[in-house]
Design a protein around this nucleic acid. Structure first.
Lengths: 239, 239
DNA sequence: GACAATAACCTGTCATACAGGCTTTTTTCG
DNA sequence: CGAAAAAAGCCTGTATGACAGGTTATTGTC
């Protein structure tokens, strides 16, 4: 058996938590869709019989998680799926050293081996074009590492989008922040222009395999890409 | 040497967002670890030159994401990695029909094919025991579906933990909420006791493979398990 | 030196106030 | 009559002050 940290009784989870639950419950029970408006703060205040402070902190919390959208003067609305909260959790794990960059890469590899295969099977022509475009822009901006990185990130997100499973997109996008903070290290480790161009070639190979609709080949190239990336990070001493 | 009150031009992402960033920035720059205390609200109020309302909403937002822990009378502290925020994002996606249960299962399958293999390679004896224990408890509570479900969930989370990669644990645990809301449907679809026992046997096979340290076999059983689970959900008409 | 009383600080919640953004209604003018 | 402009009304963003109750540090006593 395992040790539980929660005491057996939790009488008051706090008014704010209660309010948060009431709001999410409202979304569920009313079957609200993205864009639909939520009750005003005043209405919630009356319904829950608490102060506006409490209701406001609840709304603000949901807004911070990007579950709802708030803006001045208008009512809050149900938000489209967004990676905001996940990104913050991952970043928090990294900055407090509870997870390592290498662990993130291991998860990315696992997921992207799947997204790339799905993309090869399910991509539309437009999505294939977007993926190819990102790879092409990496080469064209070769002399500008920052630009290469952004197109690299866009490349991976485009593949996730082409998997037609928004959960994959969510996760892959959540990792982009970590990538932004470590990408340059991997790039510098590829000391020669030749090594750097080879890395870009790897992306083009993946794009081609997706365009051809060959999931096995796409996954093979993706595996190779990740193995090299992780090796680059390890060479640079990233734990 | 630094911050004056009003930067001349900022499209104003809002004072609260600014405060949130200031707090996370503080965690980063001070290199805080889980359990370390953050500045008091009053201190933050002075430092950012905003009202306590703003600072409070920022703290509360971070608390809702489980990035910090708050409790009455004590200062907020840096939180241990927690799946709270991720769970809420996934649940939000499900309730607003932006993602389907089947899409979640596809992601789970992808991830757990990896965690089970890693668990077979890296599990400690204690972890192997915990995994086996969960499988055993599933069988022992056979007549109580709710209990079977909880041990099923614990089983998968234990495997993720045994992968020794907290990011996997984070994601697997984030999906547990969805499982709780759909598990019974799959269970009912297995109409006969025989079919239900076979499903439990599948878990025991996985546990055995992990105990034996055979990643390939473990992954094979896990694949089978997921294929049957997804089939059960599809038979029940889950989109 | 141990221990209890107390002071100081901190968070949780409430009430109120006001500036400014949106939306709807009313008014006015063509 | 119709359309544009003005006003009214609701809504959110932020600030301030107040007080209850929990937590920690200090002090004073034995």
């Amino acid at each position: 058996m395992q040790e539980q940290t929660d005491p057996p009784d939790e009488p008051s989870p706090g008014l704010v938590s209660t309010a948060i639950q009431a709001i999410t419950q409202h979304i569920r029970s009313e079957g609200l869709a993205p864009g639909d408006p939520l009750p005003s703060e005043a209405a919630m205040t009356r319904q829950l019989n608490v102060s506006r402070t409490v209701v406001r902190e609840a709304f603000r919390s949901l807004s911070a998680m990007r579950l709802i959208d708030m803006s001045a003067g208008r009512r809050a609305t149900v938000a489209k799926l967004d990676t905001g909260a996940m990104s913050m959790v991952i970043e928090h794990g990294i900055t407090t050293q509870q997870i390592s960059v290498q662990q993130v890469y291991d998860v990315r590899r696992t997921i992207e081996m799947r997204t790339v295969a799905l993309a090869a099977l399910r991509r539309t022509d437009q999505e294939a074009a977007a993926i190819g475009q990102s790879a092409r822009l990496m080469r064209e901006n070769f002399s500008n590492p920052e630009a290469v990185m952004e197109h690299d990130i866009a490349f991976h997100e485009a593949i996730a989008a082409a998997s037609h499973n928004p959960v994959f997109s969510l996760i892959v996008t959540a990792f982009s922040g970590v990538t932004r903070r470590t990408w340059v290290i991997g790039w510098r480790t590829r000391s020669s222009d030749e090594a750097q161009l080879k890395m870009i070639k790897g992306h083009e190979d993946i794009a081609d395999a997706i365009l051809k609709g060959d999931p096995r080949l796409a996954a093979e190239h993706m595996a190779e890409h990740f193995d090299k990336s992780v090796k680059a990070l390890l060479d640079a001493g990233i734990a």
